[in-house]
Amino acid sequence: MATDIAGTVRERAARELRDRILTGALPAGTRIDLDAITDEFATSRTPVREALLELSYEGLVRVAPRSGITVIGISPADIMDSFTLLGILTGQAAAWAALRASTPELDQLRALAADVAARAGDDAIGDANWRFHQEVHRAAHSPRLLTQIKQAVRVVPSNFLRLFPEHEQHSLDDHDQLIDALGERDAVRAREIGERHVLDAGRSLTTWLEHNATRGPESASG
């Protein structure tokens, strides 16, 4: 049980710190205070250290014995490259889901899409949105592709729809179109919708980061 709790804290710390780096709230060059982060998450140093090591493997922070932990950050261009790669993977997942998803799986995806729509304007829409996309990925029935997506999707801030509430209706429209394409077993259209959905999100985040970079790091803290 203790291991499970530590894992949960590590994952939460990694996700939160990753979000802050991806959105510019922790800009490149920022020194991370291990004790402050430990206090923030009300935990021991071990899961926080593990979270920071995870981010170092992703190239977002540098962990050095003497100089401590420093944010490397990620450029808007690298963000867009990452979203482009994620878009390709997501598009492939949607195409395979159109060909491979069972009828019960399609019914579940319709229910999940409806759940996302029902939460429009609510903070809970983010979690519902993640569940919908995860099930689309699983419906591709490709463990190898799913592993690649799990790595690539880390570039998407978990609070994306809170950062860009104007994307809510756009996302819901894309979901409806994707559900239609999956139901029609139209792999070509499903791929196009899935890839476009991710690229549009990447462009929004990239533009936002470029805009905030001209205003200073304090502008990204919200």
Rank of each mutant, 00 (worst) to 15 (best):
G29Y: 13
T84G: 01
V63I: 05
L89F: 11
S44R: 10
Q151C: 04
D186M: 02
G183F: 01
A2P: 02
A94H: 03
H211A: 09
L161V: 01
Q177D: 02
A111T: 14
L161K: 08
V63Q: 08
T23I: 07
L53G: 07
G194E: 01
A98D: 03
L52D: 05
G87E: 03
P65Q: 01
L106I: 15
T90L: 02
N129L: 10
L17Y: 11
S67I: 08
D127W: 15
S142K: 06
V71L: 01
V61Y: 05
R49F: 11
R131A: 05
L26M: 11
R20H: 14
A181Y: 09
D78Q: 11
H170C: 00
I125M: 13
H137S: 03
A95Y: 06
P47I: 10
A114S: 04
G68S: 08
A213L: 05
N159D: 10
E40D: 07
R215Y: 02
I74A: 00
L34E: 09
Q108V: 14
A181G: 13
I74Y: 09
R12G: 11
R144P: 00
V71S: 02
G194D: 04
G126F: 11
V116A: 05
S142V: 02
D4V: 12
L99F: 11
P217A: 06
E11W: 01
T147H: 11
N159H: 07
R20D: 08
L146P: 04
L34N: 12
R20C: 12
I32F: 14
L17A: 08
R12T: 14
L85G: 12
L55Y: 13
T90V: 03
R20L: 00
T3R: 09
L17C: 04
V156M: 02
T30C: 07
V116H: 15
V9P: 02
V116L: 05
V136I: 06
H197Q: 04
S82G: 11
F164M: 02
E192R: 15
T30A: 12
S44P: 06
E105H: 14
I37H: 13
A187E: 03
R138S: 01
F41D: 06
L205E: 00
Q92T: 06
T30Q: 13
W96N: 13
Q134C: 04
R31W: 12
E40G: 14
D176C: 13
A114N: 09
Q177I: 02
T46G: 11
L86V: 11
A213S: 14
R18T: 04
D81C: 02
W208V: 07
P217V: 08
A140Q: 03
G29F: 07
F132V: 08
E105G: 15
L99H: 13
R162F: 01
G59F: 10
V198C: 12
D78E: 04
R100T: 09
G91C: 01
S44F: 10
A64N: 10
A2I: 10
Y57T: 14
L199C: 08
L182C: 09
A111R: 14
H197D: 00
T214K: 12
L86H: 14
A93S: 02
L109Y: 07
A113F: 12
S158F: 06
T46W: 01
P76G: 00
S102E: 05
Y57L: 14
